[in-house]
Design a protein around this nucleic acid. Structure first.
Lengths: 147, 147
DNA sequence: CCGGTTAGTTCGCGTTACGAATCAAAGTAG
DNA sequence: CTACTTTGATTCGTAACGCGAACTAACCGG
């Protein structure tokens, strides 16, 4: 039964690589790095502070600075000063960024279609439910990083 | 029903990021890049030619060269000449690399434990089966990259 | 042999990411 | 009100990653 768990890990890893690979390709078609694509995807809904976004992405603040500067130069993101704390900057998505995010998302969906297309409607829902349960439990862990 | 599919995509992406994030952390604890970790994971079983490994990883041959050189310097991989074709080099895992792969894998398993631990035994098998079906259909697609 | 193809390597370049140092704004005594 | 510390973010130097173009070596068909 330990072997079973190992196989699950393998399957998870493989699917993860395929998914990120596809996303990375869709992103780079639009001159976005995988991380930039992630960032605009995350900011689709809400704005975040630099430090918050860095944590979500698992990056150092210094790394994020550069990333946001580049994205801002391209008009994909924008930094607005957080009123109430003049040190903090709120990163929000700009119209062009939202558009790009939409496109990348569409490409991702299309590229993954053959994978999930092989599943029945009910199986898709099952899969989604299982994945969402996993994500829930992921929140339990405080840190993804160790160093 | 389009919304359902979108949610599945979201769930897939999130799980993919968590998984690669965890793996990346486990790898970097041992001074391995995510790609290096992938490489030694792939070579766990079988040896591959440079070009084959490059394709599996979705990398350019030139990129792989550097990666293998660095890994070889650390005694993780080794290149043996392919007899029958003196141009080709077979990349195989070295003892130290196999040990590291084992460790990384153990860490990955441990880090993912809370996620899959929330599932019943039967659900785990279900999930694994669904993921494996997806991977099968992934093989149908000829190329993961576009440019 | 000789052109064409295939396997790998080398080189130069830009991007990504990290960590240490720095700076400004907040918070916290005393 | 003036220090001292903490927090949010940027800058700078450095290393690794990845690409594409150019190159070498070996195979392959005539």
């Amino acid at each position: 039964m330990a072997a079973e768990r190992e196989d699950l890990i393998d399957a998870l890893a493989q699917v993860a690589f395929v998914t990120t690979g596809v996303l990375s390709a869709a992103a780079s078609d639009r001159d976005l790095s995988l991380t930039q694509a992630r960032a605009i995807g995350i900011l689709r809904d809400r704005g975040l502070r630099m430090s918050e976004l860095a944590q979500v992405l698992g990056l150092e603040k210094s790394t994020l600075s550069g990333l946001v500067v580049r994205a801002e130069k391209r008009g994909l993101l924008q930094r607005v000063p957080d009123d109430g704390d003049r040190r903090a900057a709120l990163v929000t998505i700009a119209p062009a960024g939202a558009r790009l995010a939409q496109e990348v998302r569409a490409d991702l969906e299309q590229a993954l279609a053959p994978l999930i297309g092989g599943l029945e409607e009910g199986e898709r829902l099952q899969l989604q439910a299982l994945l969402e349960r996993m994500i829930e439990h992921a929140g339990t862990r405080p840190e993804t990083r160790s160093s």
